[in-house]
């Protein structure tokens, strides 16, 4: 299981890119941290989620 934003999800083996697409995130409006390190945008397609990973996806909205 992968812990994403505090919830256990059975998504081990998926790339970050596939995960965020499946959840409907807009990749231009998010930041992703895995195991306390920011994940560079260029690694979304190659980073495979593994059991035990702790992931935070922060999604931004407009207004300021």
């Amino acid at each position: 299981m992968v812990k994403i934003n505090g919830e256990e999800e059975n998504v081990g083996g998926m790339t970050v890119e596939a995960y965020i697409t499946s959840k409907g995130y807009d990749r231009t409006r998010i930041a992703v941290e895995i195991n306390m390190d920011i994940l560079p945008k260029c690694e979304y397609g190659s980073r495979i989620l593994k059991d035990g990973d702790m992931v935070e996806v922060v999604s931004f909205v407009g207004g300021g």
């Binding site: 231009t28 409006r29 560079p40 931004f60 407009g62 207004g63 300021g64």
Partner: peptide, 11 residues
Amino acid sequence: DKADQKAMLIN
């Protein structure tokens, strides 16, 4: 004010 600009700066 724009969401993509927020994400760009933070990333």
